[in-house]
Amino acid sequence: MLAYVLRRLAGAVAVLWAAFTVSYLILYLLPSDPVAIMLDQGAGGERVDPERVAELRERYGFDQGPLQQYVTLLGRTLTGDLGTSISSGAPVSGLIADAFPETAKLAGLALALALVAGVGIALLASWTRAAWLRDLLLALPPLGVAVPGFWVGLVLLHLFSFTWFVFPAVGNEGFASLVLPTVTLAIGLAAVVAQVLSQGLREAWRAPYVETAFAKGSGRARVLGAHVVRNGSLPTVTVLGVLVGNLLGGTVVVETVFSRQGFGRLVENAVTTQDIPVVQGLVVVAAAVFVLTSLLVDLVHPLLDPRVLAGAHGRTGGGAR
């Protein structure tokens, strides 16, 4: 067990380091010149002072070779310093720390709502013997996956803020302002949870051990509760890390639609101003959230599936995106 935990920990650290490296490769080594991009943004199209170019190059370390640059950046990141924003000059870690609590609230609520709705749909569809109800319930997830999040947000805004005046349209003030963004963010996630879980439950129902349980004289409720749910939920548990990562990605759109401050809005601003240090910091933080969630899942997984420790199962965290 200890060896298993240590192995997972080491894996998590390695993935985090690699995520940093990938974001570095994308942001700093692609052909576009970061300093040119920065100055274009800052100067608003005026001619730029060559002295300022040199100064910026030095400040961000672009005068160094790629490898040296990478090592410098990595060293700084390890001490918790993610650099400074180009557009505002503020430290990136401070920006993220300020933005994170609002987004954590939103994402946490959305995750809870999505799990309740997704698990509810899947369980009810698995439980019911009425074909029409099952068909209706199973038609929902494909629908939820297909609707664009930004569009759902706008439709909800139109209905609940501009037509019925139930919830505020924008801002971070109070619980009421969280309702529509939470629903918007949760729909896609709930659909994925419902899809993966109902697929897992469907397969579990077909497993021979279900027949064994029925042959013992167990009723449907008991078979579902004691065997089908435990086995059928394993695939959902393993994709939870990816789902939480996607949730964070989803906040970019949702916070933009509802004009909320937070992680997603920070991303949107940083990309729009091509603020490279901020974008990299955000990517690394998002990867860290994914890695932490996956680590938690990995640590809980052996309790749900004893075969994991025996090495009978593959690694977790992959699969659907």
């Binding site: 692609l30 991009i37 990562g245 990605g249 990309v271 994914f290």
Partner: peptide, 22 residues
């Protein structure tokens, strides 16, 4: 390498590439 790409949420990965490419 693909594990790492999976570790970065899809939309953020796309946004990072957009930041770099324009």
């Amino acid at each position: 390498a693909t594990d790492v790409l999976l570790a970065i949420p899809g939309l953020l990965l796309s946004l990072a590439v957009v930041t770099a490419l324009g």
